[in-house]
Design a protein around this nucleic acid. Sequence first.
DNA 1: TTGTATGCGTTATCAG
DNA 2: CTGATAACGCATACAA
Lengths: 343, 343
Amino acid sequence: MESVTIKDIARICGVGVSTVSRAINNHPDINQETKDKVMRVIEEHNYIPNHSAQNLKRTDARTIAVLVKGISNPLFARMIKVFEQEIKKEHYSLVLQHVDDRQDEVNVAIQLEKEKRLRGIVFLGGYFSHSADKLKKISVPFVLCTIGLLEDENKKKYASVSVDDVKESARMVDYLIKKGHRDIAILTSTRDDESIGRLRLEGYYNALRRHGIIPKQSLVRYMDEELGTYTMENGYAMTKDLLDSGENFTAVFAISDRMAVGACKAIMDNGKTIPQDYSVVGFDGLDLAQFYNPSITTIRQPMEEMAEATIRTLFDMIRNKSSNKHIVFDGQLIEGQSVREMA
Amino acid sequence: MESVTIKDIARICGVGVSTVSRAINNHPDINQETKDKVMRVIEEHNYIPNHSAQNLKRTDARTIAVLVKGISNPLFARMIKVFEQEIKKEHYSLVLQHVDDRQDEVNVAIQLEKEKRLRGIVFLGGYFSHSADKLKKISVPFVLCTIGLLEDENKKKYASVSVDDVKESARMVDYLIKKGHRDIAILTSTRDDESIGRLRLEGYYNALRRHGIIPKQSLVRYMDEELGTYTMENGYAMTKDLLDSGENFTAVFAISDRMAVGACKAIMDNGKTIPQDYSVVGFDGLDLAQFYNPSITTIRQPMEEMAEATIRTLFDMIRNKSSNKHIVFDGQLIEGQSVREMA
DNA sequence: TTGTATGCGTTATCAG
DNA sequence: CTGATAACGCATACAA
């Protein structure tokens, strides 16, 4: 309970507290001998500095925060690895903070900026539609990564790294159309989605229209939030509905790989075969798509490269080397065994 | 930069800082009118209390920390949901902290305990072999959840909630043997694993021996850490090796569902069929197992129940209602389509 | 019901 | 190189 403080260490060593502080933060102007002694005592007594007190007093902590929205998104694990790596390389430290679905990420950011004396922030995932007023409250550079951006007049305030969800989604639908499909169902996000769900749906509409295909509302299926966002279960339920409805379609475009898996399972449980009876495509490029049976055609987002670009941009901004860029990466269509070439 | 503090709010409102403090922490003895005014000003000026300062001063924050090892483990997402729920129900707040693979979770815990004035800690995942000395540094109750526990003389110091990995693993192998399999390969963790990997391997050996089957080292395959822990890719590589080696076997037991998926894919890529040519079983009970084609027989760990038991145990300890228990849950064997009944 | 003063553990400033 | 001391922003005992 009674935890040992810097004062205790100072007393035990017979030095002043500032000397102990210098030892801890390996300040240059301290005698190596005294430093060694202090460090030894610290070890012996298992002293651990109180982070709160440090942050309260410190003016600069060389810390970057990464705020992640959507804990279960497997895409992010790889990106976070890159962040950890690159941030360490710059001798900064990383604070990884999960943001609840219902939480406001900007509030969390503001809070954290004060608490941890941040130098920069990465927002990973989520929606991000915030007022300029609120954004102004963040006083360090920040980068939005893989966040679906609708048109937004606040773009001057931050940098971003993402794929063009509309374009990539259209690319996928284009591909299906080139393969001879015309009745293409889409499994998308919730009806009120304002983010990637809406963008990918938009891409779907664009592609259809470009090819003179009139979109059918009955082929657009929205997620049931009860079943979890972007889950296999959701994909399964939507596809089952679709099959039961008797709608005519030859291909299903799920806007996430996990939903695509659910779609595949629903189709096969229905006694049908992929791709002979129905074609299925996904989006994201998870390993899951590659390892499924059949492997699922998908759009791969270059997560590692995007993570690198994110962190590089952030450090450029921190060092005032450049202003806020908006980098858009190309996705890559990876063909699996889940699409049939129509006669 | 210049962030607004409690003093600023007090000055603006024309009240003392303590009044503002009372408003924030909704203390009972404060006039509703003044409180409203203060809250309004706080809103207007977007004042956010500095967490560091609060924690430094506060003696009790009614906070529980959950330390998660292995960010990408999809099992944990569901458990964390339960934690959030239950902790909120008790009017506590939750700090979710990710622990790097190479980081020492106990150090993180000690640090965090001081920083956030914790009342209790949950360790989720990982190995947990720490000296009694170090464990003594944690002065609040803590529960180990889903952590593979070897025999450990420190068990008096903490509570734990888990499944019996040895027993459940043996149950799975028993099942295969009952189905007529005798040449059963296992895809396990790294060779030096001291945790669930080793326990599940032990269960495998136990079951074989019990049935008079002599384990063959050539059928025990270890993970290649380069390919990521418990990944599909790893399962794929191990199984491919196995197939290429010409070893004789009829079933593969992967100690995680993700590896089981990799195994399935490798077998099918080899032109073989599941379960006709080879049977495959996994462990964990991920949705993935259920949605794979074919669905994979697995052992489901009752994650939600385990999470509930964890949090209940923790609160019991906090309230001194009970001492540290060690709760062991039963797994549930869920049959899929991936096992063949041998003639 | 409210304001004032003190100290939480640390770092920064400045004088030795 | 080192030590005293003043903040950091807040909660709280105590006085009013």
